[in-house]
C-alpha cells in the first residue's frame, strides 16, 4: 500500500504549493473579473472603453513586438558568430552574455538611466561633438523602453540560439556546400529552417517577458509610457481599483498563455528533424 502511494507522496508537497499559492489565487483573480456587480463583462467593457487603457495595451503590444524582432536579429547574429568561434574566444563571448543575464533587471535598466539621462554619456558625447547645444531628454520615451528591453533580452536570445546552432550537425552544412550551395543559400535553406524551432521558443520568451515586464517600463518609461505591468501596479496600489487591476492581470494571462500555446505548437510543426 505504502509502496503504491510513494510516487504520490513525493509529488504532493510541490503540487500543493502550486495549487494553493498559484492556481487558487490566480484563479480567484481571473474569476473576480467575471463576478462584478455591474454584470459579468463590465470590467472588460470598462477596460476597452477607456482610450487611455487601450493605448496602454497597444503600446505594450508594439513595444514587445519591436523588442522581439530586434532581439531575435541581434541575438541570431551574435549566436551565429559564437557557434563558429574557437574555444577561447567562445568562452569570452559566452561570459559577455551570461554576466548581464545574471545581473538583475533593476541594475540593467538602471544602466540605461545613466546612458540616456541629461548628464548621460550620449548627451555628453553629442554636446562635445557640437551636434546639440542643450542636453536632450531621451528618458521616458518609447525608444528608451525598447532600448533597455532589447538590452535585457539579447543575452537570453544569444544563449538560447547558440545552443541550437551548436546542435546543427556539421555534416549537413558540409553536404550543402559540397553540393554547390552558396553560403547564403546554406543559411537560408539549411541553417534557418533547422534553427527555426529554437528561434520561435526564444522569440516567445522575449515577447512574453516584454509584455509582462514591470521594472524597465517603470524606470525608463514612467507615467508617460505606461505599459500593462505598470498599469497593473498603478491600478492596484495607487488607485486601489482592484477589479481594474484584476482585469489587466486577466488580459496579461490570456495573451501570455495563448501566445505560448500557439507558438510552441508552431515550433513543433516547423521542426524539420521531427518529420
Amino acid at each position: 500500500m505504502v509502496k503504491r502511494l510513494t510516487p504520490w507522496i513525493l509529488v504532493v508537497p510541490a503540487s500543493l504549493l502550486v495549487l494553493l499559492l498559484l492556481i487558487l489565487p490566480v484563479g480567484a483573480t481571473l474569476l473576480a473579473t467575471f463576478a462584478d456587480a455591474k454584470g459579468w463583462a463590465a470590467p472588460y467593457l470598462a477596460f476597452f472603453n477607456s482610450g487611455f487603457r487601450r493605448t496602454v495595451l497597444w503600446r505594450t503590444v508594439e513595444v514587445s513586438l519591436i523588442t522581439t524582432v530586434i532581439s531575435v536579429v541581434l541575438g541570431f547574429i551574435a549566436a551565429y558568430v559564437v557557434a563558429q568561434m574557437p574555444g577561447r574566444l567562445k568562452s569570452i563571448m559566452i561570459i559577455a552574455a551570461v554576466f548581464p543575464l545574471l545581473t538583475g533587471v533593476v541594475v540593467r535598466s538602471f544602466a540605461w538611466l545613466i546612458l540616456l539621462g541629461k548628464n548621460g554619456i550620449i548627451n555628453s558625447a553629442l554636446l562635445a561633438l557640437g551636434v546639440i547645444a542643450e542636453p536632450i531628454s531621451m528618458l521616458y520615451t518609447e525608444g528608451a523602453v525598447i532600448a533597455a528591453m532589447v538590452y535585457l533580452f539579447v543575452p537570453l536570445m544569444i544563449l538560447t540560439l547558440s545552443g541550437v546552432l551548436e546542435g546543427i550537425p556539421k555534416d549537413v552544412l558540409e553536404a550543402a556546400s559540397s553540393l554547390g550551395a552558396a553560403p547564403f543559400a546554406v543559411f537560408r535553406q539549411v541553417i534557418l529552417p533547422l534553427a527555426m524551432p529554437g528561434l520561435i521558443v526564444g522569440a516567445v520568451l522575449v515577447f512574453t517577458g516584454s509584455f509582462t515586464s514591470y521594472a524597465t517600463p517603470q524606470l525608463l518609461g514612467g507615467e508617460r509610457q505606461m505599459m500593462m505591468g505598470t498599469l497593473l501596479y498603478q491600478r492596484a496600489m495607487v488607485t486601489f481599483d482592484w477589479t481594474g487591476a484584476s482585469t489587466v492581470a486577466a488580459i496579461m494571462v490570456v495573451v501570455t498563455i495563448a501566445i505560448v500555446l500557439v507558438m510552441t505548437r508552431l515550433a513543433r510543426r516547423l521542426n524539420p528533424l521531427a518529420a
Binding site: 490566480v26 483573480t29 497593473l232 492581470a249 494571462v253 501570455t256 498563455i257 505560448v260
Partner: peptide, 14 residues
C-alpha cells in the same frame, strides 16, 4: 507560464 506580476498581485489579494 503565469506572469510574475500577476502572481504577486494575486498572492497579495488572496
Amino acid at each position: 507560464l503565469v506572469p510574475e506580476i500577476v502572481l504577486g498581485f494575486s498572492l497579495l489579494k488572496s
